[in-house]
Design a binder for these strands. Structure first.
Lengths: 205, 205
DNA sequence: ACACGCATACATACATGAATGTAAATGCCA
DNA sequence: TGGCATTTACATTCATGTATGTATGCGTGT
């Protein structure tokens, strides 16, 4: 069954990535061979090696399908003018990110990144997580700095401390939830914790 | 060279576990073979298979050396009467746990558990993490419930929400710190965030 | 419009290396 | 001297990368 049309080739590539998500999630990255992935997609290893250089290349291609740009979310919410200020923008952005995380593919891939892989040759999940984390932290820091400059934060909490508090709370919620996604709703329960934190650190008239 | 005295045999066992910590931390669990561990300890695989059933058995033995019983910490602090009440007890217990986590062996092993292994045959880090997490959460929940009963929590925060907030913040701090232990001090910076949270949710006269 | 040729999209086969578990061999302490 | 701690040797399994086979879609020339 050789050469298909270009569209069909792209479809098999996607199918291979879909299969990778399934098998990685079930067996862990290091335990799954490219043979497993290929068979799960109804293909052979030849197809995998055609579309991807090796396992690491396939892994990164899988990650690329769920990139979520946080600054973009912030900008969107700012543009939509739903929020009452930088603190509310940050709060809504967090909830929106939770929403996105609960989408099946995003949930699967992040679970794989955080709980189903350890670093091999060219896959370094800790480094990848660090990059995601510091990206997130910088966005949060900028928002809190702005909020502080506008006098929206209570005096007892410096913007850096607020940053650490929110960032660690987000990280903890996401980790907890990804370990057991069915035990609670990230958006509901997590959102409640986030809302409470913002309530506590916001200056009220 | 064969048979040593009983004490020497025990020493080799510990040396093997020490070696396991080093190599697991450096290369990840699935990438390290029992041969690597044995050689790093100046032994051969035979020694490993004598003291441990297989890799999973060795892994769990490694974990057993750093068990920290949270309820025990709570009880100790309560007995020492340093704290002003359940909230302060919980706060001090958290800081004490941070202290223990910063000890080299504890840091190494927890890093391995969280960032250096994915599940293989009989090693299920996610399940192990879940057990640690729910253990921690229950301890926190009991403390907050007691604090609430004694009217120490502010009205805006229900004990369950406080539990989720503190627990996720602890989890997030620990994860962040374990990913990059040299970037900040868990006890210092993390402690500041924890202190701030307790300040915010405590009812003040 | 049609045949030709090449690049494409896979499948198959093979060589290599590495890790595991176990069985047998070996020396030392008690 | 016998059982304990450890090494050595061996058989098996399994994943990887590469090399090769192969049929087909697609552009090109006339």
């Amino acid at each position: 069954m050789p050469r298909r049309t270009k569209a069909e080739a792209e479809a098999t590539r996607e199918a291979l990535l879909d299969a990778a998500e399934d098998v990685f999630l079930e067996k862990g990255v290091s335990r799954t061979s490219l043979e497993h992935i290929a068979r799960h997609a109804g293909m052979t290893r030849g197809a995998v090696y055609w579309h991807f250089k090796n396992k690491a290349d396939l892994f990164h291609a899988m990650l690329d399908r769920v990139k979520m740009p946080l600054q973009q979310i912030i900008d969107d919410i700012t543009a939509e003018r739903q929020a009452t200020g930088p603190l509310d923008t940050l709060r809504l952005a967090t909830l929106h990110a939770f929403d996105m995380l609960e989408r099946p593919r995003s949930c699967r891939v992040h679970t794989i990144l955080i709980h189903r892989c350890e670093f091999i040759s060219d896959i370094n999940p800790v480094e990848l997580q660090n990059r995601l984390a510091s990206d997130c932290r910088e966005v949060v820091r900028r928002c809190f700095q702005q909020a502080h400059d506008e006098g929206l934060l209570i005096d007892a909490i410096a913007p850096d401390v607020a940053t650490l508090m929110l960032h660690s709370m987000i990280g903890g919620l996401v980790h907890d939830w990804l370990r057991a996604p069915d035990s609670f709703s990230l958006r509901e329960s997590g959102g409640e914790a986030i809302d409470s934190l913002f309530y506590l650190i916001t200056r009220h008239a």
